[in-house]
Write a protein that binds this DNA or RNA. Sequence first.
RNA 1: AGAGUAUUAGAAAUAGUCGCUUGGAGUUUUGCUUCAAGAGGAAAGUCCGGACACCGUAGGGCAAUGGUGCUAGAUAACGUCUAGUGGGAGUAAUCCUAAGGAAAGUGCAACAGAAAAUUACCGCCACUUAUUGUGGUAAGGGUGAAAACGUAAGGUAAGAGCUUACGAAAAAUUAUGGUGACAUAGUUUUUGUGUAAACCCCACCUGGUGCAACACCAUAAAUAAGAAGGUUAAGACUGCCCGUCAACUUCUGUGGUUGGUGGCUUGAGGUAUAUAGUGAUAUAUAUCCUAGAUAAAUGACUAUUUAAAACAGAAUCCGGCUUAUAGAAUGCUCUUUAG
RNA 2: UGGGGUAUAGCCAAGUGGUAAGGCAACGGACUCUGACCCCGUCAUUUCGUUGGUUCGAAUCCAACUACCCCAG
Length: 115
Amino acid sequence: MKNTYSIKKNKVLKYILKKGIYNTQNYIVVHYTKNDINSNYNNFAVCVSKKNGNSVQRNKLKRWAREVYKNEEDKLKKGYNIIILYKKTTIIDNLNFNDIKNDIINCFKELKLYE
RNA sequence: AGAGUAUUAGAAAUAGUCGCUUGGAGUUUUGCUUCAAGAGGAAAGUCCGGACACCGUAGGGCAAUGGUGCUAGAUAACGUCUAGUGGGAGUAAUCCUAAGGAAAGUGCAACAGAAAAUUACCGCCACUUAUUGUGGUAAGGGUGAAAACGUAAGGUAAGAGCUUACGAAAAAUUAUGGUGACAUAGUUUUUGUGUAAACCCCACCUGGUGCAACACCAUAAAUAAGAAGGUUAAGACUGCCCGUCAACUUCUGUGGUUGGUGGCUUGAGGUAUAUAGUGAUAUAUAUCCUAGAUAAAUGACUAUUUAAAACAGAAUCCGGCUUAUAGAAUGCUCUUUAG
RNA sequence: UGGGGUAUAGCCAAGUGGUAAGGCAACGGACUCUGACCCCGUCAUUUCGUUGGUUCGAAUCCAACUACCCCAG
């Protein structure tokens, strides 16, 4: 992930979740806003709730989301803050990597984040 | 066939594409290339014990609080472990055991029952004023979770460890064995309810906070005080000059916002062999260096083969305990059946 | 990372070793022309989050576990 930075401040996350535009799929919610500056980079974060399982399953969900973002990074527009949320009802037992991948790609398409 | 116990490992291999963290080397310069390494038996719960750091303390002791509680040993230490003793479960292998003191003192023991610790309701016996009385007695009845050693004989007015025989338990003491807990045997005395996971007594241990500890670097706002400087259109002493104060600038300091670095992984380490020991473990020699992230790395996909497989993710480190755990493998032991 | 607390009927909640008070709700009855208020009665029953232990006896004492909540920074 060359041109992205991770979001570290709690204030920024809350601002994006309040003011941002979002779209939902079966397992995933994506929020985004524009950056203040006309910049060449994106800010990115993944959130997994504690209701989604124990730490192994949460870690795996995070890795999947980061993997999808890494593969789709070059096609995206620049200058946005993006957050990927998992819904509280998603459980890892019935899921594959491809389900998550299709969800995220559909979200990005609906939000018109592709160039 | 069934059971017990101890230990081991806890998905693997090949090829390809993309990618993360740390370290080394190279190039070049802050990027790239290449090489190597990269989660567990419980990393979990945070239930104990330590290392380490800071605070407190001259050094030590007593008390309080809290904890532990058979013996000997191991260990840095422990509430842990090993080997035993006593008690309990099991045909057995084997397993379980907070297991000091109730004869230091206090408290409690509902209902029932006469009585829950020096007790007498019914009853038995004697005397009698002949009964709804006095005295003796605790064998029998009944209550209860628990009732003042058990059985038999003697004895007696009736009875009673009152006496005797056999047996049970406790205390003291002697002898033998054992490092010791304790065991065996004998003598004397006694038959004194239960509860300490109720207070308590006895013995031993115990200062507090915790890596978000702590150290260093840079840094925001406001600023007591001190030192130096000497700038001015400027305030005061003072009308002017010098000077001093104030103000100004810089530094120290105070204050503690934000970010970073260290602490951070070579250690009560691992592996192998030998020796000592029943064992936990210890000693010696040789050899090896095996995660160190910071919103948190160790991953994703494709193809082939075996397999269909759990519980589960390091966060300062170490020794234990407890809890979760698919299907397996290996060693030893016991019981039953058949040959 | 460290520390603390709670769990009792559908809901709220008392109960400090001797067999679980009370209120709301629910159900049944009574009153009323009908409904509400009022009145009477029933409802924890192998049982106090789960498991095990101490005790004659445990919601209560002890240990381990589960779920939820709070605090410091």
